[in-house]
Design a binder for these strands. Structure first.
Length: 571
RNA sequence: CGGGGCGUAGCGCAGCCUGGUAGCGCACAUGGUUCGGGACCAUGGUGUCGGAGGUUCAAAUCCUCUCGCCCCGACCA
């Protein structure tokens, strides 16, 4: 392909809208352009990279036995109402009405639709297992779209749905998908980490995320993994065995009110009372679907709202507003405590059980209570609601310690069970003539986000460094001066040899200065570049450079294509 | 949804405070000189100053409303 015959609008300056490297590079290198918040045009280079990755995905999905279909983007509301997700997925769902006033949704995922298909067509266990997948546009009205393709409102996703007769079948299907995912991401050039995750609004019993580890600002999630065994989980899901505090042999004392003028935060109170944060108990008041609940957690810990939410079985969990806190506790925010707190259920983190003589708010302005013990108030339930932290002991092997890293989620897998087949009445007849709901799984890969993750993982200050498998073109040929017939001739000759060998080539035939061409080549990131210039031709050589490390090699003109192929294959 | 910021030429920005004929760089067009890591000279074209309303002799500039976009937060007790 000739540069002047395609469309690669590179930018000389950094676009103002981009924050992280991969987003900036996608814009600068002419891969994408934003249409509106969270919605992007994919330009020719992007389109080619998309073909690369979707081919990989198709090959591996097909090899795993999954079957490709395409489902509609537009769904009738009734389907979503039947599974209850019309309400639970709520704000994220793009909704609209048709001309008859019927409610429709733009699909952000397709469990309902695929279940509807199977419900109508499959009747017997003999037809199982089945795994249907598609690669298609998805719509999600994200709270805040950001980082380009990372969190968009329209994006491309591969989604697969497995149907089995029982849990055993589901496990087999699930493991097949996990295997396929490792193969897919390996072919994309990165090692992914499979981590346990919360099932969230998807429902079901068991879920994992596939994370590309990056140590840049682009890392959107924190994951904790064991330095000894294979335990890994995202921060929402991670559990740990807390580090044993020095066993307290303190005798419980009697509680005592203390004056703490304007001391509201843990920092302020610890400084004022000269007590460490682990001797404090925070009391956080939440509204769970509008109903107040108080959560107690040690002063130096972070609460894990996902764990709390799951425990409370509520749809919406939010911190109570100051007015509500005043109404419930009789004191300003910052002085809430469990002692004497009435009319609000209290849940406490299990760590609190082993605390002695701690500090809590007094439910009276400017007052805390010290030397509080468990008998001084009643807890409705002890549960684990704190965030696990790096350094703590692994819950699986009990020996290793958790280390924290950042990653980008590129895939996820869910064991759904009958969450969708039940309400939609998708059932089959088993070998005993009994009617049973399908046992389902669902499996996603964020296609566009995976490409951006690749850029986030593979770039330098000059531009993108594509892994071979995703690069829009395999080779980038640069005749420095198109006005020089000899350079042009050599360049075109090399291109046609490479193409005949079955590889794709972009040839920069622009009438630009060499500097511009080199910089653009570094920017758009093809794996191997061949530069043909006057200096080299005088010695009868061209220059072959690998993008990865910009290592250059001078090669005789007549060996150029052959050697370029070797260099490419060694990558 | 809360807080902050920004909308001026295709892109990046200045001008706004203190109202008075809309500017700079890049890009683009033409000509010339250049030519191995983002050239130079000359000439030229380019604007609903996001939109609506208001104040004023006069509004990019001041006021009100509105739309769009970006960032932070929504794990603080």
């Amino acid at each position: 392909m000739l540069w002047t015959k395609t469309f690669i609008p590179t930018l000389r300056e950094d676009p103002a809208e981009a924050e992280i490297a991969s987003h900036r590079l996608l814009l600068r290198a002419g891969y994408i352009r934003k249409l509106t918040a969270g919605v992007y045009n994919y330009l020719p280079l992007m389109q080619r990279a998309l073909h690369k990755i979707t081919n990989i995905i198709r090959e591996e999905m097909d090899a795993s036995g999954a079957i490709e279909i395409t489902m509609p983007v537009l769904h009738p509301a009734e389907l979503w109402q039947k599974t209850g997700r019309w309400d639970t997925v709520g704000k994220e769902q793009m909704r609209l009405k048709d001309r008859h006033g019927r409610d429709m949704v733009m699909g952000g995922t397709h469990e309902e639709v695929v279940t509807w298909i199977v419900r109508g067509e499959l009747r017997s266990y003999r037809q199982l297992p089945l795994n249907l997948y598609q690669i298609q546009d998805k719509f999600r009205d994200e709270i805040r779209p950001r980082f380009g393709l990372m969190r968009g409102r329209e994006f491309i996703m591969k989604d697969a749905y497995s149907f089995d007769r029982d849990e055993t079948g589901l496990r087999i299907a699930y493991n097949k998908m996990v295997d396929a995912y490792f193969k897919i991401f390996k072919r994309c050039g990165f090692d992914v980490k499979m981590v346990e995750s919360d099932v969230g609004a998807m429902g079901g019993t068991n879920a994992h995320e596939f994370m590309v580890l990056v140590n840049t600002d682009g890392g959107e999630c924190t994951i904790l993994s064991c330095d000894r065994c294979d335990y890994a989980a995202n921060i929402e899901k991670a559990v740990s065995i807390p580090m044993a505090l020095p066993k307290s042999n303190e005798e419980p004392k009697s509680k005592e009110m203390v004056f703490t003028p304007n001391m509201r935060t843990i920092e302020e109170v610890t400084a004022f009372l000269k007590k460490p944060a682990e001797k404090l108990v925070k009391t956080l008041v939440y509204l769970a679907d509008g109903k107040p609940v108080a959560a107690l957690i040690r002063g130096d810990r972070q609460i894990n709202e996902i764990k709390l939410k799951n425990h409370l079985h509520c749809l919406e969990l939010e911190m109570a507003d100051p007015a509500t806190i005043v109404r419930l506790t009789g004191a300003q925010v910052g002085f809430t405590g469990p002692v004497g707190l009435k009319g609000v259920p209290i849940v406490a983190d299990i760590e609190i059980k082993s605390m002695v003589n701690f500090v809590v708010g007094a439910n009276r302005d400017d007052t805390h209570i010290i030397n509080v013990n468990l008998d001084d108030f009643s807890v409705d339930e002890f549960i684990e609601i704190r965030c696990a932290e790096a350094g703590e002991v692994c819950p699986r092997c009990g020996i290793g310690h958790l280390v924290s890293s950042r990653g980008i989620e590129v895939g996820n897998t869910f064991m759904l069970g009958t969450k969708y087949s039940d309400p939609l009445g998708a059932r089959f007849i088993d070998e005993n003539g009994e009617e049973k709901p399908f046992i389902m799984g669902s499996y996603g890969i964020g296609v566009t986000r995976t490409l951006q993750a690749a850029i986030e993982a593979f770039h330098d200050e000059k531009g993108i460094i594509w892994p071979k498998s995703l690069a829009p073109y395999d080779f980038h040929v640069i005749p420095l001066f198109m006005s020089e017939p000899r350079q042009k001739e050599v360049a075109f000759d090399i291109m046609s040899k490479l193409e005949q060998a079955g590889y794709s080539v972009i040839l920069d035939d622009r009438d630009e200065r060499p500097g511009v061409k080199f910089n653009d080549a570094d920017l758009i990131g093809m794996p191997v570049r061949i530069a043909i210039g006057e200096k080299g031709l005088k010695e009868g050589v061209v220059e072959i450079v690998r993008r990865k490390d910009l290592k250059m090699e001078k090669v005789p003109v007549e060996k150029a294509a052959e050697r370029a192929l070797e260099i490419y294959r060694e990558l």
